[in-house]
Design a protein around this nucleic acid. Sequence first.
RNA 1: GGACCGUUAGCUCAAUAGGCAGAGCACCUGACUCUUAAUCAGGGGGUUACAGGUUCGAUUCCUGUACGGUCCA
Length: 494
Amino acid sequence: MPEEEILRQRLDKLGRLREEEGYDPYVHETWDVKHTLNQIRAEHDDIEVDQNRKDVELSVAGRLMTVRKQGKASFANVQDETGNMQLYFQLDAMGEEGYRFFKKWIDAGDIVGIEGHPFRTKRGELTIAVTRCVLLCKAIRPLPEKWHGLTDMEIRYRKRYLDLMSNPEVRDVFRQRAKIVASVRKTLEDHGTLEVDTPILSYLAGGANARPFVTHHNALDLDMYLRIATELHLKRLVVGMMGRVYEMGKNFRNEGMDAMHNPEFTAMEVYWPYCDYNDMMDLTEEIIRKAAMDANGTTTVTWQGTELDLSRPFRRVTMVDLVKEHCGVDFDAIETDAQARSIAEGEGLAVEGNESKFKVLLMMIEEFVEKKLVQPTFVMGHPTEISPLSKRDPEKPDYTHRFELFVCGSEVANGFSELNDPIDQRARFEDQARLKAEGDDESHPFDEDFINAIEQGLPPTGGLGIGIDRLIMFLTDSRSIRDVILFPTMKPKA
RNA sequence: GGACCGUUAGCUCAAUAGGCAGAGCACCUGACUCUUAAUCAGGGGGUUACAGGUUCGAUUCCUGUACGGUCCA
């Protein structure tokens, strides 16, 4: 049946309901919901077969998902946000008029208010024996198939409301998401960290190496950017003596989409003055462990068949040591860039042009190591060249006190001791500007006011960013980032 | 960006060595006072994603496009 035909039929029925009964299903504003369905299931589990507790008055509301109409007695299943329950409609209990109205006008997909008593059928199912059924809202589009649910991934993402109503387990993922987010906030706040809001719309998109989305402010006649990170604003707050601060919110990066990337995603960034990257690694572990406990009640996680043990300390190992371990190459012994390039080529890596040895080190990590980091692993010691905001390792100034956390081959967190030497910071930005001039559109922009801020004096500070969507993916065993974002970015269909 | 796969009724899926496009759910009519994927009887519902090509004939074969999925970069 064409969709318009279904709509036409339902609109026709709606018209007849208004005409013949003088009943408008869209005028209702409230229903006194006294019980949720799960609550009833828990409280009246002791009712025996064939027993009807007429002394108990129930009042619930929800969407009818299946309807089994018979002559003078019918059944249906109603769903609310906690679960679903069978309803028993019986002429004798509802009265002639109430039963007739139900049978003639109420259909699967409609929203109803129900009053009745708990009882258990001969087949043993806890059921509400309906005394009153009020049509609170009429649906004029059909439900997805009741047995298989909605399986078409495209429709599930584009019309999430259909996915949520017909696949209850999807709602559980987003409940877990809320628990994880709350848990992260609680952990941070337990450590005296203040939640703040910094601009999403900004005239400079810094704090990470990524291409921003560009928009335009008409009144100012100014191109503006959606933020790619919160870092530079949060560190200004530390300069301003706000102490420990964090922000959890959306970042936007103008890049490809796949199972791990959505153009808009949720990140949490936190900055603690007088702490370093080791403290941030400790904090990362604490946040993740507590989130797992709060969401799942355990620190053992299975993601797509791989068991992850979050209870043990996460391994901490430098990039140089990882390349030594996985490729047998000692970068500390490499003198020149050319030497590094030829070694990488010997390992089968296509190195083009004049990559520095530090860029080659990064490429080797990405190519040969990252995928193998299944259990949570802090990769440390990133080259200064690729870390324009990180403090140098005083022992090895070409490297920084930085880490990234990898889980199942994916980056979940990134943190470092913050660079607070304003002279060095200016030089790093100048390097980035040079890269930009050479055509690198992911180079970090030069932010003069940020330099001014740290010229005022940024205390020694540890900073950390966590990819919240990815963390949620691992804790909810979700294959794609789209499964943990309610309305993922989709290309328009037509 | 590349490779592969998918797109048939609102939903879940069939079908043809190239020959009238089918089922279940949902929808409409009727029967039924313990059903639960209710059942029974009847009915309506299709530009087979879109655009071309080959052919007497294309949903099926070919080319392209769109959207989606999986893997790779």
